[in-house]
Design a protein around this nucleic acid. Structure first.
Lengths: 133, 133
DNA sequence: TTTCTGTTATACTTTATATATAACAGATGA
DNA sequence: TCATCTGTTATATATAAAGTATAACAGAAA
């Protein structure tokens, strides 16, 4: 796996894990139907508890990014990803607003702010593992 | 004050307060040199403890957005706001990356994502209280 | 039957968040 | 001088979040 956990970070471990799984899906490193490691093996790999892994899995299952079957285990959802919701737009708006305010105070103008957001979006969805087939 | 605290939110109270003060500075509702309410009066106004207010004030003082003098009390920093730092760029990059990944998965393309960021930046720094003088 | 799976349950520790109360020293205004 | 307000510090408490540890269960697979 490509997951890297920073034990010194102030960001909760299960949040770091869930974020990186989301980013893996967005970048194409994880494709619909792809199996994920078991909570025990991934926990052992990352050096964290299986319940911490399970909390990340459950969160992403609840939000519709993962499916968990008795047979196949944990897989990336293959029946279509969740759409844009009002809840997501509100959450994105709140976080971007907070960042934009601090950026503006620090002297970052609209052009630079938007450029940074654009570049970040592109670097997030474009991963070298993708092929043009 | 224009501060509104949501007691039901999962976001810590001192974070809500600090965020809204930052947004007040960015929008021009709070200008350099402007005095802020005392920790006791603002706490009473918002219905929260003075230590919670103090934690928000201390955080913003530490980051360079506020000054606290024995005489003038708490005021918006008038000697120049903190610049763009590597730490800020990293933090912004991390948060935008997380949002961009989820947005892309949910079907929001680059154009819509960037538009939302642009509109949010503009609505953050443009406040009706500003005049063109 | 053994092994692996997700899941649930219980218990525990540590940290973060928030409040309550009190006290102190500097500054202010009557 | 005296009362009041300021930020600040200290102590204590309560609650929740985060993370770990251990165990057990039932379904599936070899």
């Amino acid at each position: 796996m490509f997951i890297e956990i920073d034990m010194q970070s102030e960001i909760p471990l299960y949040t770091q894990l869930a974020d990186q799984l989301i980013e893996g899906i967005a970048s194409g490193q994880l494709k619909p139907g792809d199996p994920l490691p078991s909570v025990r093996s991934l926990g052992a790999d990352l050096g964290i508890n299986l319940h911490t892994v399970n909390k990340a899995y459950q969160t992403l299952k609840q939000e519709g990014f993962l499916d968990i079957h008795r047979k196949q285990g944990v897989i990336v959802r293959s029946g279509g990803m969740p759409p844009i919701t009002d809840e997501f737009l509100r959450r994105m708006g709140r976080q971007v607003k907070s960042l934009a305010a601090e950026a503006a105070i620090r002297g970052m103008n609209e052009e630079d702010f938007v450029r940074k957001c654009t570049e970040t979006y592109r670097s997030t969805i474009n991963f070298s593992g993708g092929d043009g087939s």
